[in-house]
């Protein structure tokens, strides 16, 4: 694996007015070319960890670096040319065509007044095609289904021509097909195009099959980290999610089944 993209060292962050730190003493890194998963219960600090690594929050303790520099010191346009982010929730208030929405991904390159050229239009088209959303180009964003909107936002991140893709719970309200499509797209960009991917998800069974490495967060701390085969175990999941599970190997890869109360023996 290549250079380190993101690194957390003894990273700690407290939201103002909250006693418990949201992220506490986290050590963690993402190397170039990896697809890394961040997993953990609701409120375990996954998104806060991301926001620290993306330079939106400043650490209260320790360090959060991106490309060997404190993450919060990057200028936003410069950062946006390297890292494409799809945040959890985004609801457009004003009507936009899909093509225009994806063109916003070219703004970090064009600046405030640089011209958007035929080259930008071509990049937008490629990004739409890569995210399997080219047929949506002339639609209004407000008319898209959840899965379509997610792919359009993925296309917008790709249009940034980033080295790193960061997706925060990208499949939260998607059905099986659309969920698999997003995972497949992420795996393709990382595996075939040399991008680096960071994905926050609740989906432990997909995590074991897609990710090179996972970090499992619990109450702001790292509960386990490493390749899924060693980090994602029945014991870790039961502790972190506070629910009994069974582990069943499927083609040699562990898959986890949460148990019903009357199935606990």
């Amino acid at each position: 694996m290549g250079d380190v993209i993101f690194r957390a060292e003894q990273l700690t962050y407290r939201y103002p007015g909250v006693a418990e730190p949201a992220v506490c003493d986290v050590d963690f890194h993402v190397a170039e070319g990896e697809l890394v998963g961040i997993i953990g219960p609701n409120g375990s600090g996954k998104t806060t960890l991301l926001r620290l690594l993306l330079g939106v929050l400043k650490p209260d303790g320790g360090r959060a670096t991106a490309f060997d520099r404190p993450a919060s010191e990057w200028r936003r346009p410069q950062f946006a040319r390297m890292v494409g982010v799809v945040v959890q929730r985004e609801e457009p208030v004003f009507p936009l065509r899909v093509r225009q929405a994806v063109m916003l991904g070219r703004y970090p390159h064009a600046g405030a007044f640089g011209a958007l050229t035929a080259r930008d239009a071509a990049i937008v088209k490629t990004a739409l095609a890569d995210a399997d959303a080219l047929h949506l180009a002339e639609r209004w964003t407000a008319t898209l289904s959840a899965g379509e909107w997610q792919r359009v936002r993925l296309a917008r991140a790709l249009a940034q021509e980033p080295r790193v893709l960061v997706l925060d719970e990208p499949t939260a309200n998607l059905d099986i097909r659309h969920e698999m499509e997003v995972f497949e797209l992420a795996a393709t960009f990382v595996g075939e195009r040399g991008l680096t991917g960071v994905l926050v998800t609740h989906h432990v069974n997909l995590a074991t099959r897609y990710f090179d490495r996972v970090v499992i967060m619990n109450r702001g701390r790292v509960a386990a980290a490493g390749p899924p085969a060693t980090a994602l175990t029945r014991a870790v999941l039961e502790t972190v999610f506070e629910w009994p599970v069974d582990a069943h190997p499927w083609r040699g890869i562990p898959q986890f089944v949460p148990l019903r109360k009357n199935e606990i023996t």
């Binding site: 993306l54 939106v56 936003r76 346009p77 950062f79 946006a80 040319r81 890292v83 494409g84 982010v85 945040v87 985004e90 609801e91 457009p92 208030v93 004003f94 916003l104 991904g105 703004y107 970090p108 917008r156 940034q160």
Partner: peptide, 15 residues
């Protein structure tokens, strides 16, 4: 244009 998307997406698109 970016800010109309919301503050968080705007930030990650360079605003």
């Amino acid at each position: 244009d970016l800010l109309s998307l919301g503050e968080e997406p705007a930030r990650f698109l360079g605003a």
